[in-house]
Amino acid sequence: MNLNWMAWTVPTATFFIVIFCLLVAMTVWEIRRPGGAPRVGLLRFETTRGDRLFISLLGSAYIHILWLALFPALSLWWAFAFSFLYALAVFRWV
């Protein structure tokens, strides 16, 4: 089977490996401490840590796109930093 058509690059491969590791880590966490620590946070509905991870990742994607739209000249690493802060905030307050 030839996989050339998938056109892998190092950055995208890293991206997917990180996502995969996150999922594995979440699974391990869930097995160690079952239940997912549900709570009602800022968004007024019950979230578990899986939900919080999803909200963080999805929000980060939007932060990156917004950054591209608003500050096309600046480096994307800024958006990355903001996403990280955003994710921390989500895990703390949502």
């Binding site: 050339n4 058509w5 998938m6 056109a7 892998w8 690059t9 995208t12 997917f16 591209l68």
Partner: peptide
């Protein structure tokens, strides 16, 4: 995954890809 890979590259066919970033 393939779509993600394509989205950061440029191609002129023949499975030849060039890095294009964002």
């Amino acid at each position: 995954m393939t779509v993600v890979n394509y989205s950061v590259q440029d191609t002129f066919g023949n499975n030849q890809f060039f890095w294009a970033g964002v």
